[in-house]
Amino acid sequence: MKIGIVGNYGNDNNGDEAILLSIVKQVTSTFNISSEQLTVFSNNPEQTAKRYGVSSFPLYYKNGNAVKTFFKTYRLNKEIVKTFDLLIIGGGGILMDLYRREAPLYGSYAMMAKNSNTPYVIYGCGAGPLLSGLGKWFIRYMCKHAESISVRDPESADLLQAIGVKEQVQIIGDPAFSLRKVVQDKAAAPTKIGITAVPYYNAGYWPEGNATIYNDYVEGMAKNLDKLAAQHDVELTFFATKFPQDADVTKDIVKKMIYQDKTTIIDDNLLPNMILDITAQQDVVIGTRLHSLILATCTETPIMAISYHHKVSDFMKLANLEKYAFPIGDIHHHPTLFLDAFSEMKQNWQATISDTKSLSSQLYEESMKGTKQFVDAIKHK
């Protein structure tokens, strides 16, 4: 049996790497096969092959312009796709056109599979934004010919329906929830707080740079963390899921803080299992990156979120935690958001822990339902 996996992998985004790790574990367990029978299309094939024990090929082949790149990638990788028993297109917010390449790129893999009579599934993805006619066309094409479609939140399902997808769309949550790690003992009271940040509107990372917005965000984070540190005896640990970009932002935040003596920055490229270890050691995680929130939930660690993207607020809504989700634009104007939320959690700490354990278990069960897609797709071949 040969199974292919395609997504935004090999890009030093360890949120996406957590998704890949979960899919590799799910597929090998479901079919009782070795990782050597898997092929992953990756931005860094050598790194991906070494980490996961899989075969790996380039996700795309640059060839002058977008059109030439599309056709070269299609021509070369179709020869690989046609050897598969199943292709899994999935994990992460790849059903979008914010960066222009995503919809045509992943749509090309749907075309490769369809034209090779290789069954494929769209698995546990996030959708949106979808603003261009071309992007919408590719996503409709992907969905029309897939054996099955699943997404990670109701908003993604609604968006697919809104752009004209007529096929049934399942909601299974993020595949990374299958990495659940039960933590036996939680602190009697919260003192350790983990934090992640993103380079929000930083010109070196964001599609459109804006120094004023970035500085307001950094200052807002610093002020909120200072207010929290002033009122509570806490240890603040910054960690990154996208390295080194997120670590650089945390350094900018700490420079503006008064209570720098209460902070630690983990300035390392943390693989998913390392992030799980870190979130398990925290009592609360204040996350901007979606997968810092997801992996914290996997380790039964209570969370609050800074919603820099709709996928973060969508997840917090799915988890019934909207009251702990703060729009990123509010951070600069309201310096006690973290303090107020933390104080409420601390006052009701045992209930907070109990609710988080239940949420972790529930989301794990939902994510594991998705493996039925793999089995059903191969049955229909």
Rank of each mutant, 00 (worst) to 15 (best):
G4Y: 04
G4A: 08
N13Y: 07
G15P: 08
I19L: 06
L20S: 03
E36P: 01
T39G: 04
N43V: 05
N44D: 15
N44I: 09
E46Q: 14
A49P: 00
R51F: 03
G53H: 10
G53W: 06
V54D: 01
S55A: 14
P58A: 10
Y61F: 11
Y61I: 05
K62N: 11
A66R: 15
K68T: 15
K72V: 04
T73I: 10
E79F: 07
T83L: 01
L87S: 11
L87Q: 10
G93E: 02
L95I: 09
L98H: 13
R101Y: 08
E102N: 14
P104F: 00
P104G: 00
S108W: 07
A113C: 09
G124R: 00
C125M: 11
A127S: 13
G128M: 02
F138V: 12
R140P: 15
C143E: 08
I149R: 07
P154R: 06
P154I: 03
E155P: 11
G164V: 10
V169E: 01
V169K: 00
Q170V: 08
I171L: 03
I172L: 12
I172Q: 05
D174T: 02
A176F: 04
V182S: 09
V183F: 04
P190A: 07
T191I: 02
I195F: 02
T196H: 06
A197H: 04
Y201H: 15
Y201E: 11
N202V: 10
G204L: 07
G204S: 13
G204I: 05
Y205T: 14
G209Y: 05
T212N: 13
I213S: 10
D216Q: 12
Y217G: 06
L225A: 06
D226V: 11
L228C: 09
L228N: 05
A229E: 02
T237G: 01
F239N: 08
V249D: 00
V249I: 13
M257K: 10
I258W: 06
K262W: 02
T263W: 07
P272Q: 03
M274H: 15
M274K: 15
T279A: 10
A280S: 11
D283S: 07
V285L: 14
R289A: 00
L290E: 00
S292T: 08
A296K: 05
A296T: 01
E300M: 07
E300V: 01
T301I: 10
I303P: 11
H310P: 03
L318S: 14
E322M: 09
K323I: 03
F326E: 05
I328W: 00
H333L: 14
H334R: 14
L337Y: 07
F338N: 05
F338M: 13
F342H: 13
S343L: 03
W349Q: 07
A351D: 12
D355H: 11
D355W: 04
Q362I: 00
S367N: 08
M368L: 15
K369P: 09
